[in-house]
Write a protein that binds this DNA or RNA. Structure first.
Lengths: 141, 141
DNA sequence: CTCAATGCAAAGTATTTGCAACCGA
DNA sequence: TCGGTTGCAAATACTTTGCATTGAG
């Protein structure tokens, strides 16, 4: 039995369905990101390191390109919590985050009373792309 | 009459009260940031350009240092909405933001039904620093 | 006086880009 | 074949740092 919930074929279909040509590199990255169905928060550098450590032959620029394209197609979400690096979230369903600043660690949470969506009046010609909610935590002194 | 709500003396006191030595540069920056009492969202580079345009003699590094220190003391808030630059918000009371991505423009909003604060269970040894809420908007195609 | 703050340029670092080689359809 | 993708290194741009100088208390 495989440790993957999704196999190459399924990932390939996902990429194709998203309008992305399923190249070897994209499939391998998709496998690392989505293969086991678990939610991940990682940076481009982390994914690059992970891929290389797994023996994948891929360049840094391709990882950045792939993540940019994945995000543009909604396969992952960008999370801007840290001044120095962008995190990518493999969980694209609506949810919120805790961010432990000292540890640079993200935790998914799910709020129930999110009635504020309707409370905001948007300009006529604007679309609500997403609502980012981040609870910033610090270790007590 | 002056165009400033807060004069040098008051700004100097604010800095001192925050535990920051009121140097000429910090006072001048504070004046640009808080002088008229209006809410601002600006980047370090924007503040630097503004200061220089106003004839202030100050270096880029000092602007970055000052904003870092102001943020550490709670005089301004960092807003991470853009991958490329950090915005600083002179409004440090609790509120939320609209971000028009195409224009790199931030708008303050105020949500009323923010009961979700209590809904989140924090680890015992953690403190909630802040909750960042950003409504990301795009111009309709 | 003394130590914090400033200024300048250099360094640092995540990310993007230019362009030739490559490959999927 | 053809245009999208990759790879490498160089470029970019925001931010930080090293260190000598300055200035607030």
């Amino acid at each position: 039995m495989s440790s993957f919930l999704f196999d190459h074929q399924q990932l390939e279909n996902s990429l194709r369905h998203a309008g992305l040509r399923p190249t070897r590199q994209r499939i391998e990255l998709a496998e690392l990101l989505f293969g086991d169905g678990k939610d991940r928060h990682l940076t481009a550098e982390q994914l690059y390191a992970t891929a290389r450590a797994a023996g994948k032959k891929i360049s840094r620029a391709t990882v950045y390109n792939a993540l940019r394209d994945f995000a543009a197609k909604g396969l992952v979400h960008k999370i801007l919590v840290d001044q120095d690096q962008v995190y990518f979230d493999t969980n694209v369903s609506e949810h919120q985050h805790l961010y432990i600043e000292d540890e640079h660690r993200l935790v998914d949470i799910l709020l129930n009373n999110c009635s504020w969506q309707s409370e905001v009046e948007l300009p006529e010609d604007m679309t609500l792309e997403r609502v980012d909610v981040i609870f910033r935590l610090r270790r007590k002194a």
